[in-house]
């Protein structure tokens, strides 16, 4: 049988999280089809068709799929499900919203946040904010998985294009909810999920202005993405999509610089797989130092400007 990968995109470009989930799918083995649900998403389908190891791209377009609302999108996937024994998606907010709905409609227990494919029916996933890793074997006829993309390299994207099949968007599940608006934060920085370097700020930054003033120059010098702790987001210093942690983004850059972040379990859950961690904190006993490769005990308001000057 075959694998269906539900793609992440914004109707214009294909997210590289899809290419990473595709690598997980390849490890499971079998023919892989990619589903693009959207509207005016032809360019996304073209990009997906070029990814290595794709059999077909299935393109479903319509008003109800433009924002991939859970109800119609899940209904669409359920209608396709008969041809597949594995259905997966990157563990993005869209994947997390839609796939459990598909799972329940198919009477299947989903495996969330797969970090390793042990065999086609056995997977590793983090539990307790990543403080334990469980290996689970599915017993359902269909396997439904979300993939933690930081654990997989992206599949390459310059292959001879796979065929694109257009299907009807369907009308099941429509009318239950309506899209109103996206309030997306604008920034021209690298995306957290794919950045090589992340400079991340915590409660110690003290205000949105100071967060901007102190963090941005360093991030600019390093070509880095900016991240934040929950405390910084809750206090309004940074926007919600910058939160790193158990319930925010999970990141694994080459370099993560934690500034004025104490290192709570929930924050570590989102960044402790970074290659190199640097911590800057006035408290030499802060738990963040237990995971940091390099620590500086000191005031970030002195250290960050100094860092910017010397870089």
């Amino acid at each position: 049988m075959a694998i269906l990968l539900f793609a992440e995109h914004d109707n214009q470009s294909l997210s590289d999280q899809t290419a990473k989930a595709l690598s997980a799918a390849s490890l499971i083995g079998g023919d892989i089809d990619i589903l693009i649900a959207g509207k005016n998403a032809g360019s996304v389908a073209d990009a997906a068709a070029k990814l290595s190891g794709v059999r077909n791209v299935i393109l479903a377009e319509g008003d109800t799929l433009e924002h991939r609302l859970a109800e119609p999108t899940a209904a669409l996937i359920v209608n396709l499900s008969g041809d597949y024994d594995t259905i997966l998606a990157p563990a993005t907010t869209t994947g997390k919203n839609v796939l459990p709905r598909v799972a329940a409609l198919l009477d299947v227990m989903q495996v969330s946040d797969v970090i390793e494919v042990v065999s086609p029916d056995t997977f590793k996933r983090p539990i307790y904010a990543g403080n334990a890793i469980e290996t689970v074997q599915t017993t359902d006829a269909t396997r439904i998985l979300t993939i933690r993309t930081t654990s997989f390299a992206a599949a390459t994207g310059d292959n001879a294009p796979a065929p694109i099949k257009t299907i009807d968007a369907g009308s099941d599940g429509t009318g239950l909810s309506t899209f109103l608006e996206n309030i997306l934060s604008k920034n021209d920085r690298p995306e957290l999920g794919s950045a090589k370097i992340i400079v991340s700020g915590g409660r110690a930054l003290g205000s949105a202005e100071r967060f901007q003033e102190v963090m941005t120059p360093v991030a600019d010098k390093l070509g880095a993405a900016i991240g934040a702790s929950r405390a910084a987001v809750d206090a309004g210093y940074a926007s919600n999509d910058l939160q790193v942690g158990q319930t925010g983004k999970v990141v694994a850059p080459d370099l993560y610089i934690a500034c004025g972040i104490s290192g709570a379990i929930q924050h570590l859950a989102g960044m402790k797989d970074s290659k190199i961690i640097v911590a800057i904190n006035t408290d030499e006993d802060a738990p963040i130092f237990q995971v940091a490769d390099y620590g500086i005990v000191g005031d970030l308001f002195d250290i960050l400007p100094e860092l910017e000057r010397q870089l």
Binding site: D10, H67, L69, T92, T93, T94, S177, T178, F179, L180, E181, N182, I183, L184, S185, S239, N240, D241, K249
Partner: peptide, 10 residues
């Protein structure tokens, strides 16, 4: 709360 920011639905 979505990956890119916020989304309002009814």
């Amino acid at each position: 709360e979505v990956d890119g920011g916020l989304q309002a639905i009814e």
